[in-house]
Amino acid sequence: MLKLFPDDRPLVDIVKATKVYPPDIVAVQNISLAVAKGELLFLTGMSGAGKTTLLKLICAIEQPTKGVIEVGGRDLAKTGSAEIQQLRQEIGVVYQDFKLLPKLNAAQNIAMPMEVAYRDQREINSRVDELLAILKMTHKREIQTGKLSRGEQQRVAIARAAANSPALLLADEPTGNLDQDSANLVMDLFEQLNREGTTLIIASHDESLYRNSDYRRVQLEHGLFTNHSSPRQLPLINQ
């Protein structure tokens, strides 16, 4: 899985990126951030600070107005659409609004990234079962996601993002609808993925997720980084 991403460079390298939405909403301003391979990074900040925008820049859903976004050593602005698609197979994303297909059941939704990568059907089934079990969702396997509660939908979205054991996982407010127990399950899954080599960027308000850990944390405020507290300080920050 890691063949797309060389070891000797940051997995994600954002250089002086600015995103302005029309007409003149500045969501992210002159931000620089490097995320090393194997890191688990928290992105915090108030509502409207620009967290979602930053994640969208990293997975090429939005293009920066200024600056450069590099993922796996590739400048996204100079990467063709076919290669972007290939890159996306290596990036799992938990969207803030989930982006599930309501007519498909939980298992079918989770299987999508693996089908797109032409995985073996048995492998797909066992991975789906495994993820459902980890998130305590096995009994909802065959239920259309449109009929699930928000919290259940969120866990399906998380399982889908994790399905391919991606090189990079972006999670936007992944525990926003979850009780403490479920949130802990999710965090356990993320840490397990991280141990297996996945790099994670988690955008969250939920202090309990990072309170007792020493993961690096960067905070956005009105599109700018304000503090970057963490004992595990790494290179980066806005200059």
Partner: peptide, 16 residues
């Protein structure tokens, strides 16, 4: 349409 959008997001190739 919505399905195709999501397929794109999870990395489906044009061929897929």
């Amino acid at each position: 349409e919505s399905e195709l959008e999501i397929l794109r997001l999870v990395g489906a190739s044009n061929r897929y």
